[in-house]
Design a protein around this nucleic acid. Structure first.
Lengths: 179, 179
DNA sequence: TTAAAACATGTCATTAATGACACATAGGAG
DNA sequence: CTCCTATGTGTCATTAATGACATGTTTTAA
């Protein structure tokens, strides 16, 4: 297997909340879930077909306006089983952290290398921006702190924020070590 | 492009330090660099061939014992250019963080869900182990703190440690929110 | 009214990565 | 002497994912 195909579970998970069209699923990766996962429509549509063939989904056709038909997908009992099995399965600790920037640092071993400082500073700009964005998301979506319903969403946003916090701190520490 | 093919740069970076065989490169992903990247020999050998065709590498044959020949690869000036261009290029902030566990939490929105606590606890075991392992690595490889030569390696280990630290803290916080 | 933006659904060629298959030598322990 | 482990190098089928190509409708704002 090239990858673990987690997309199927994301689709099932999203459809478990409410039936959606392929287009709406695609959009979900631009907002909420886009904070920590990505997928294009060219991957989503074929996956929806596969899941339907496997009996995990069904769809109903809706017509908007004159002729434009869209397919609204809903999860089946089979699909719900698949989802729950995945949720129940142990999760590898991965933190697979394929971090390109860390990789670059690894290949600049000398603390006096002139490239080091500008690189770290550029990265600091990027991650500070990301951190600010995430903090704004958290404050906007959960102004009252941890909710009872939607806790998962809250937790992953919280996590993303503290991950960026750690990243910024790390970059700052790194800067103190180079000329 | 399916991925960014960073493997080529890792190979160039490792060979920039010292010439290595395919086998030795493979082993590098079990130790040092394995902490934050993975690759199998089935990917490495073809990549070495590609890089040699592209003029980034050359190899010399060495014979061990009676007949076993191995190929020791060295980086060329072309290869060094490729490496330096990559190092000089801006790095996307990604933190692509495709975290399977976070994904699962997202799909268990209810704080009272009975699955939540055991999941978090299991994950805590995993990540605590990983954190301990990384701290041990750091203490073993850099007993005197940040070095002048090998700073990159130190920094990424440091980063891995604090990332795991953050992860464990986050899991602990998450546990306080569920029944 | 007309043009742009959003809605909506698909296919296809290419690439990266995995795991399995395959084969052979070298060295050390029992 | 024999077996096991490590060394050493490769191929191949399959899968996941990307970006580009392709096509058409509906809504909205100038």
């Amino acid at each position: 297997m090239a990858q673990r195909n987690l997309l199927q579970f994301i689709i099932l998970g999203l459809l478990h909340q409410t039936p959606l069209t392929g287009y709406e699923l695609t959009k979900a990766f631009d907002s909420d879930i886009g904070e920590f996962w990505s997928a294009q429509h060219s991957q989503i549509y074929p996956q929806l077909q596969k899941l339907e063939t496997a009996g995990s989904l069904t769809h109903t056709e809706e017509v908007t306006g004159e002729k434009l038909a869209r397919k609204r997908y809903a999860i089946t009992d089979t699909g719900l089983d698949t989802l729950n099995n995945w949720l129940a399965a142990p999760t590898p600790a991965s933190t697979n952290g394929k971090d390109e920037f860390a990789l670059k640092l690894y290949f600049i071993p000398d603390a006096n290398d002139a490239r080091l400082r500008p690189m770290l500073e550029a990265q600091q700009v990027e991650h500070t921006a990301k951190r600010t964005h995430l903090e704004h998301q958290l404050a906007t979506k959960f102004p009252d702190g941890a909710p009872t319903v939607g806790l998962g969403h809250y937790l992953i946003l919280q996590h993303a924020v503290s991950r960026e916090h750690e990243y910024c701190d790390w970059l700052a520490t790194a800067l103190t070590h180079c000329r």
